[in-house]
Design a protein around this nucleic acid. Sequence first.
DNA 1: AATGAATGAGTCTTCATTCAT
DNA 2: GATGAATGAAGACTCATTCAT
Lengths: 209, 209, 209, 209
Amino acid sequence: MDATPPQHLSARKKPRQARSAATLEAIFEATIQVLLREGIHRLTTTRVAERAGVSVGTMYQYFPHKQALLYALNERYLDLVAERVEAACQAQYGASTKTMVEVLVTTYWQAKTERSEVTRALYRSAVELDNEALIDAFARRMDAATIAMLKSAPDAVYANIDLVNVTLLSVIFGTVRNDFERDLPASEQAEIRHQLTLMCLSYLEMSGG
Amino acid sequence: MDATPPQHLSARKKPRQARSAATLEAIFEATIQVLLREGIHRLTTTRVAERAGVSVGTMYQYFPHKQALLYALNERYLDLVAERVEAACQAQYGASTKTMVEVLVTTYWQAKTERSEVTRALYRSAVELDNEALIDAFARRMDAATIAMLKSAPDAVYANIDLVNVTLLSVIFGTVRNDFERDLPASEQAEIRHQLTLMCLSYLEMSGG
Amino acid sequence: MDATPPQHLSARKKPRQARSAATLEAIFEATIQVLLREGIHRLTTTRVAERAGVSVGTMYQYFPHKQALLYALNERYLDLVAERVEAACQAQYGASTKTMVEVLVTTYWQAKTERSEVTRALYRSAVELDNEALIDAFARRMDAATIAMLKSAPDAVYANIDLVNVTLLSVIFGTVRNDFERDLPASEQAEIRHQLTLMCLSYLEMSGG
Amino acid sequence: MDATPPQHLSARKKPRQARSAATLEAIFEATIQVLLREGIHRLTTTRVAERAGVSVGTMYQYFPHKQALLYALNERYLDLVAERVEAACQAQYGASTKTMVEVLVTTYWQAKTERSEVTRALYRSAVELDNEALIDAFARRMDAATIAMLKSAPDAVYANIDLVNVTLLSVIFGTVRNDFERDLPASEQAEIRHQLTLMCLSYLEMSGG
DNA sequence: AATGAATGAGTCTTCATTCAT
DNA sequence: GATGAATGAAGACTCATTCAT
């Protein structure tokens, strides 16, 4: 994510050697595990360090403070999601609008749902974290990826593609999150996802034609 | 909200006298204020009590613990929103689908946006709160209200109204929340809201009559 | 108990009317109940008042503070025990030393054991209570009662009856309390009690006669 | 003491280094001091830490909570007493019953009386502490030590040594504690102690022969 | 006289962060 | 560089006591 993070939230050092990268990864994974098993109010630096198999001191070598760790964790997560969506978008260049929408909805939904508990945990970790910059950067990446894709569609041209696109993303992202929070049964979620696709499609037809 | 709250989250006593009611209100308002001005990690029982102009002890006479306070706060908020939406829905009985959708989107959007900072604060306060019951109850109320409204539409009949309705609500609620979190400029928000209305409309036309 | 209690521990008012006496009794009984069911660290004035069926305010009319309540409770308890022992002693005037010792041990043991949980609770309540005066007064009453009894024995005369007597009481009271704290099975307790009687008897024979 | 303490009462870590051992000792001593000077109801974690010259945090590194500290303190104390009595018993192997009893009474009395204020403080600290296991373990150790000693006496054989022994210990321990609580003048205590010895001796003669 | 809501000092306990080893 | 013991400020919550009604 090329978001310029609020100065105080940046990690202390970039992983140069493999050793560092492994440690960093362990810390991230540990954070998620603690978040999952203990809940956010038991997410302490000591516990994370312990589960990561490093000392607190070492952890503080990587992150100047707890917030920086959580910030980085979210950054990393959004990066992964963004990459998946971008890849999916690029793969659809020139495809039909229908396919595009189906793929977009499915990809995002899956990215969020695959480890749904993790996603939920991360949502929690982001609270009271000054992560606007992160979200903005993510949104911009997504915007760029989907606009480029939509523009390549052979069957549609949009008068106001920026607006159409931002609407499309708002609706998709928002709906996914909403369903997330309601914890509906998988079958119902699938139905809603399908309806969402239909809705987006009809919207694009209406807007693009 | 007729959600049966997890036993441990229920408030300690109901305000019988006017005095109590006023105190309760002061506590709620104070909680919101602290949440707004200080952020969730500075939301302490002491601070809330202080701003509410009561002693901590008094606060604990109303709520057995901090979580119960936050739970009650969310409950109260969702009640207000639910009431507004219900009222709006009832007022549209027999109106055109177009009007219905417009009113629904607008009402919900406004209910959330009017004191948008408060809404945001409440979203934060809900983290790590076992408020599933609350959300469920809210969702059911909304479901009932909108289904009843849609059924009264003279210009449409839906084969699978339950699915259509839950999709509609998921999309609307989700999109509103999403835009919320992105903190877009008001003008852009308005545009998206408009597009959302169009999208819902086209979806209903496609699904209904 | 005619102990002059430390000024600050005396009850606020003496029960003049039946009403007061009943209330007082209720408070005492409630205190014991709370002590038994909740433990000493949950023995709060509110809880006691609640179980006694009176308001805290009322309770404070009877006792200027919590300590005074506990003091009075212990006083009352020791009075009851003392009365029982005194009565038993008087009834043995002129009896044989053997009978005297048997009765003394049995009476005291029973007085403590009958509601052994209560006794235990009271021991706990006495901690950090300035109840030396109480214990002294009790000891003096017991001393007087047993000395008078022993003097009336037709079969023995003691050179140093004061010392013999204080030893006797120390041993009996101490042993009872000790067995108390160890919570031994009833059968074993009975055996020990019997042995204790034999021991006392042999001691008296050795000292008197 | 090889009592298996109730899980939740065990100390957090064993002192490995000298440093830790010193800290631990300081905490124990501080606890006793506070108990002595301020009384049990002013025995707070903060005060103990302060007097021990460490931070509360450090204290909590050694003991998971206040109760664990008190438990450990009692454990340590009983260990010391037990060791003294055991040593004394072993030293009397083969001695006369008279000597044995004299040594037993004297040793126990001294162990408890030397720092009588401390003993008293510890009795208080034990209230509302689930220390049955501790007391049991102590009792068993004492039982074993004195039975072994008595068996080695050249001048007596007991038909029912278990019962005789438990009675003996009950009487001695109980009487000591009782005199303790009454706070009698030292001279009178000495007299009682002497009488106690005589009484025990006469009991053993009667039982052993 | 009785009530019980209100008070707020005081308790235990946690945990981010530092720094001597 | 890594460690993890030590720190102590800050938080949630309790409860003896008062006093307006």
